[in-house]
């Protein structure tokens, strides 16, 4: 069987998603029997870009001209382009202040006044520039979900779609509902599940790291949180931690 040619890389991101893939120690040896890591700079395993890839797995948001150049290159060279992780899908942590401060202010606060500022623009998802064939959400994604995707690609298919909010898994695991019982700022109802409700299972609210679920009733979630005494600013701040743009009027 022909080994699938893979590119794995990151744009503006922390490399955490790529590390998650590298942490799949049990599966990697067998996986490498089916994939050729032609381009995976983080793992120093292949640095070749000018071939045709079966799939490019791209972490991170787009926020520099270099990001954009690499993204276009990979899109053109790949049969499947995978948005890998919350930044690639929604902008993620790097984009949380997109609506709060200008890029220039942010760069100044990092690099200091008077320094030459690097060229960059507000971080945005891959799909703002290119078409995306598959997605794995999460900050970082669940090991199981990235393995499902890579194995499906190797088998010539894509993993089946599933879509339910964090609450579905959270309730099914019989966790205490932090939104109802403790009246905390939990985003479970509007956030994409698949994480086995990791945080609520340990008593920590869902902060929304997996981005919005398809049928998110954002307006009602907002109302619920306001009723619980949280301020609009605080709520919006929390909601934009992993995705800057929410439609707070959306009900369906």
């Amino acid at each position: 069987m022909r080994r699938m040619k893979l590119a794995i890389t990151g744009l503006t991101a922390c490399s955490g998603c790529q590390l998650t893939l590298l942490n799949c120690e049990d599966e990697l040896p067998e996986l490498l029997g089916h994939c050729e890591l032609v381009y995976f700079p983080l793992a120093e395993s292949g640095n070749v870009l000018d071939v045709q890839f079966d799939a490019a797995i791209v972490e991170g948001a787009v926020s520099t001209p270099k990001d954009l150049e690499l993204l276009f290159k990979l899109r053109n060279a790949s049969t499947h382009l995978v948005a890998y992780g919350t930044c690639a899908l929604f902008g993620g942590v790097a984009a949380m202040n997109n609506r709060v401060s200008t890029r220039r202010e942010l760069l100044r606060s990092v690099f200091g006044a008077g320094e030459k500022l690097p060229e960059s623009f507000p971080p945005v998802p891959l799909a703002n520039f290119v078409s995306v064939d598959a997605a794995v959400t999460g900050c970082p994604p669940e090991k199981q979900e990235i393995m499902e995707l890579v194995v499906a690609l190797a088998a010539g298919t894509l993993p089946p779609a599933r879509s339910y909010p964090v609450c579905t898994e959270c309730r099914s695991h019989e966790n205490l509902c932090l939104l109802l019982e403790k009246r905390e700022l939990c985003l479970g109802p509007v956030v994409q599940g698949g994480c086995n409700a990791r945080c609520p299972a340990t008593g920590i609210v869902c902060e929304g790291c997996r981005g919005p679920v398809r049928e998110a009733n954002v307006a009602q979630e907002l109302e619920l949180l306001l009723e619980r005494g949280f301020g609009r600013d605080e709520i919006e701040r929390r909601m934009s931690r992993f995705k800057p743009e929410w439609d707070y009027g959306k009900r369906s």
Partner: peptide
């Protein structure tokens, strides 16, 4: 869909 896609291959 993804099932028919694989069937066609």
């Amino acid at each position: 869909g993804h099932v028919t896609e694989l069937l066609h291959k």
